[in-house]
């Protein structure tokens, strides 16, 4: 492998990894607060991509407007899902909400099939995204540089919200202890909605960039990236935002590198993440940066 190829693979890994990381943040934030694996999150990712191209082809919106609109609409869907399908189950056994989430996931996926059809659709990228940039021997698509940069920006924004604003303080309080937060006057439901909104917006951003990077839309396009992002969140330590970012990026890089170094294993690419999940759950269920949750006898 040449140096140029190595750089190229690293950049590809970073791109894939930051897309995973953006989705993983949504999983980790919701899990941190509600101890719920938001199974429908991968469909939120998919919807984000669909909405943009819906806006462009149906309403002839300019790109920027279509993207902003899609992010807002997707975030609203995320909030709505919580309101309708999860909030009534806050006091129910935890698995009930998970089953509800699985139901929502199938619902959103199949509604998309009903509305847009099950067949993959080609995405027409703007021309300026098609011309590769040359840096010495390294040829990269503009997106390969653009995706990690924008993701970093979004994550910094998130860090600012979580650590420097009042709603962010609320989120951190709820993730420590939801009951006490409630008693202390934290507007729990509003903060949870905000969490779903932010998580969904980031997933939508990821979905849009995904569709530009791998130019195809498909109702099931969210499943595999969604799973992998969840695994990334567990890898990084579920509940921890920095963990989700590190986990996502590492998973992306490892995946690209594994296939680059061992092309024979390409067929097992999707199994790799699941093996990783099982290994982490067994050896270090708290992940890289997670806090230990103890069972009280």
């Amino acid at each position: 492998m040449t140096w140029a190829m190595f750089v190229q693979h690293t950049l590809n890994g970073l791109t894939l990894g930051s897309l995973y990381a953006l989705i993983a943040i949504g999983y980790t934030m919701v899990y941190g607060i509600l101890r719920l694996i938001n199974f429908a999150h991968s469909e939120i990712f998919m919807l984000g991509a669909y909405f943009v191209f819906w806006g462009i082809t149906l309403f002839y919106l300019p790109w920027a407007l279509a993207i902003v609109g899609a992010v807002i609409v997707t975030a609203s869907v995320g909030i709505l899902v919580d309101r309708v399908a999860y909030r009534p189950l806050r006091d129910a056994p935890r698995i009930s909400a998970l089953i509800s989430a699985i139901g929502v996931s199938f619902f959103l996926q199949n509604v998309t099939i009903v509305v847009f059809g099950a067949l993959p659709r080609q995405v027409h990228r703007p021309a300026w995204l098609e011309d590769p940039i040359l840096m010495g021997d390294v040829r990269v698509l503009p997106l390969t540089l653009f995706v990690p940069a924008l993701s970093l920006l979004l994550m910094l924004g998130l860090v600012w919200i979580v650590y420097k604003t009042k709603p962010g303080l609320g989120m951190r309080a709820i993730s420590k202890d939801i009951e006490t937060s409630y008693i202390m006057g934290v507007p729990v439901n509003r903060i949870i909605s905000l969490t779903f909104g932010i998580g969904s917006a980031l997933a939508a951003a990821s979905g849009i960039m995904w569709a530009l990077r791998y130019p195809q839309l498909q109702p099931v396009m969210g499943s595999i990236p969604g799973f992998k992002a969840f695994i990334a969140a567990v890898f990084g330590g579920i509940g921890s935002i920095p963990g989700a970012v590190i986990g996502g990026v590492m998973l992306g890089v490892i995946e690209i590198m594994a296939v680059a170094f061992f092309p024979d294993l390409a067929g097992y690419r999707d199994a790799f993440a699941f093996v990783l999940l099982i290994v982490i759950l067994l050896l270090k269920p708290t992940g890289l940066m997670g806090e230990k949750l103890e069972d009280k006898v």
Binding site: F106, F107, N110
Partner: peptide, 15 residues
């Protein structure tokens, strides 16, 4: 025919 409708109904029922 409306492909996907079956699972829409069933997922909704499960929820």
């Amino acid at each position: 025919g409306i492909p996907g409708m079956r699972m829409v109904v069933f997922s909704l029922a499960l929820i």
